[in-house]
């Protein structure tokens, strides 16, 4: 095998793959938040309801979320190929992997939201109730602002998880750095490409985590 030779790397391809990864993360990240945040709020509200029917609905919803979270992403991804085809018109490339990424990450994010909301001091919620706040006002004006550091930490974890999901999606023909690493490194034994692709992903995760931590610190008032 000898030493490593990075001269043969196609940097244009590497750049395209990086952009593709960023695109997948950005689009799936946005949809994960759009779906996962309300789902998390609903889980939180229903989870502490005294109403028997609502509690039952909560149990069912919670069960579904747990199932989605416990299915390995690689299997979920394959299982969702038909769905991706019908929504996006394709099951491969950047667009084809978005549905799988969102369905894989949204339940995970919803649980993080639920946990972050549970951390909000009960006394503050009661104070707002005592002032005549409606449930909607409590969510918008108390729960979300008070839980902001926790929510941002949850967003960070979710996006980092999405980076690794996008890498896995290379297995079923998704684009991006993961795809590149698998195609060159695994199938063609060009380990230099794999090393660079993995290094870029490591850097990406580091940057995301640092940015997330900064945001959390910025909004922490305790």
């Amino acid at each position: 095998m000898g030493g490593l030779d990075f001269s043969g790397i196609n940097w244009d391809e590497m750049l395209d793959a990086t952009i593709a990864t960023l695109k997948m993360i950005a689009i799936s990240g946005i949809f994960t938040i759009i779906l996962g945040l309300p789902l998390g709020i609903v889980l939180y509200l229903w989870g502490k309801s005294n109403n028997v029917i609502i509690r039952a609905v909560y149990s069912v919803l919670s069960f579904i979320v747990n199932i989605l979270r416990s299915v390995p992403f690689i299997i979920l991804m394959v299982a969702l190929i038909p769905l991706s085809k019908s929504i996006m018109g394709t099951s491969i490339g950047v667009l084809g992997t978005i549905p799988a990424l969102v369905i894989g990450a949204a339940p995970f994010f919803a649980r993080l939201v639920e946990t972050a909301l549970r951390e909000v001091d009960r006394g503050i919620i009661e104070a707002a109730q005592g002032m005549g706040a409606s449930t909607g006002q409590i969510v918008m004006r108390v729960l979300l602002p008070e839980a902001r550091p926790g929510l941002l930490a949850g967003v960070t974890i979710t996006i980092v998880t999405l980076v690794s999901y996008t890498a896995m999606s290379g297995m079923i023909g998704g684009g991006g750095l993961g795809d590149l690493a698998i195609r060159y490194g695994y199938y063609r034994y060009e380990k230099e490409v794999m090393i660079i692709a993995v290094a870029l992903m490591v850097i990406l995760v580091q940057l995301l985590q640092m940015a997330g931590d900064r945001l959390v610190r910025h909004f922490t008032r305790k």
Binding site: G123, I124, A127, G130, M131, G132, P145, R148, K222
Partner: peptide
């Protein structure tokens, strides 16, 4: 009830202020 509660102020042992 929400409307009536506006006419009743309340303060607490642990203040219960919005920390954010």
């Amino acid at each position: 009830l929400q409307v009536q509660r506006r006419k009743i102020g309340m303060i607490f042992q642990h203040f219960n202020l919005l920390s954010s």
